[in-house]
């Protein structure tokens, strides 16, 4: 790893100022993607701005009809959040499948979303729930945020502060986990909130996370695995590597979407607390 200067700001404002002064700097959250990449010398930032001391960035809370998760909230803390398990279990199940226990103790939602790894889990949850990514400057809809593999709409000097997830009545995530890395070979997040139906896929697309409009259309009649029985998506645009062919990934999208739908509908309305029923 090349050397760098290290900064430890106490507030988001200080972090933004440091970022403005150091154009080649990178923000350091959990560091479980950035530090490995720096070890390989694939990234060589001049400075690291460590966000870990900024307490205001961590926490899970329900605000109105949304769950708000601070950018520095660790995967383990999201997975174990009782309030999240209660109001949006489909989202709570996502971070529990990331990496391993030690990685989940350090990795953060903000880091995962900002990195937009094409095999990461959180981008599917953000797109599948129609989340809003809140930065120190503005609010960005998930549909506009993920712009391609390892690319996002984030501008220079922009820092993710929190992610707001609308509480969907039915939501679930299913993932075909790569047995060694734990990353999603393919992962599908499905959600229904009123008439808004979303199917978001990670791991499969050659250009990162995407929505499956044909499935969403078919699910408008009835939000059930039966509605997309036998449906597939074309293999064009699917990722291809030593782990799986485009055809296999395309096949898994259908299989996992049906499994996720089965899970989301099995949770049923009875799981939704009275206060948020009817959404």
């Amino acid at each position: 790893m090349y050397n760098f200067t290290y900064h430890r700001p106490a507030t988001v404002r200080q972090a933004a100022n440091l970022l403005a002064k150091n154009p080649e700097a990178k923000l350091l959250a959990g560091g479980h993607s950035l530090i490995p990449v720096m070890k390989l010398r694939l990234a060589q930032p001049s400075a690291l701005i460590d966000l870990n001391q900024i307490d205001e960035l961590a926490g899970v809370e329900v605000k109105g009809r949304s769950v708000v998760i601070g950018a520095l909230t660790r995967h383990a803390d999201v997975a174990n959040s009782q309030v999240l398990q209660q109001v949006l279990p489909g989202l709570a199940s996502v971070p529990g499948s990331i990496g391993d226990p030690q990685v989940r103790n350090r990795g953060t939602i903000g880091g995962s979303v900002a990195n937009n790894d094409p095999n990461a889990d959180y981008p599917a949850a953000c797109l599948g729930l129609g989340a809003t990514i809140v930065t120190n400057k503005r609010r960005i809809a998930a549909d506009d945020f993920f712009t391609g593999m390892f690319s996002t709409a984030l501008e220079e000097n922009e820092i993710i502060v929190k992610v707001m997830f609308p509480i969907a009545k039915k939501a679930a995530y299913e993932k075909f986990k790569h047995p060694a890395s734990g990353f999603a070979l393919v992962g599908v997040f499905v959600a229904k909130r009123g008439s808004d139906i979303r199917v978001a896929v990670t791991g499969a697309g050659a250009n990162g996370v995407f929505r499956v409009k044909s499935f969403e259309e078919a699910l408008k009649k009835r939000f059930s695995p039966k509605s997309i029985e036998g449906m597939t998506i074309p293999a064009t645009g699917m990722n291809s590597d030593i782990h799986a062919s485009p055809e296999y990934r395309a096949h898994l999208v259908g299989v996992l979407a049906r499994r996720a739908l089965a899970k989301a509908t099995a949770r049923g309305d009875s799981d939704v607390p009275g206060a948020i029923a009817g959404m």
Binding site: Y6, G31, H32, D50, N105
Partner: peptide
């Protein structure tokens, strides 16, 4: 008090 992988943490952190 929490288990982490010390190969992926900077000492300065």
């Amino acid at each position: 008090g929490v288990a982490m992988k010390s190969c992926t943490l900077l000492a300065l952190q």
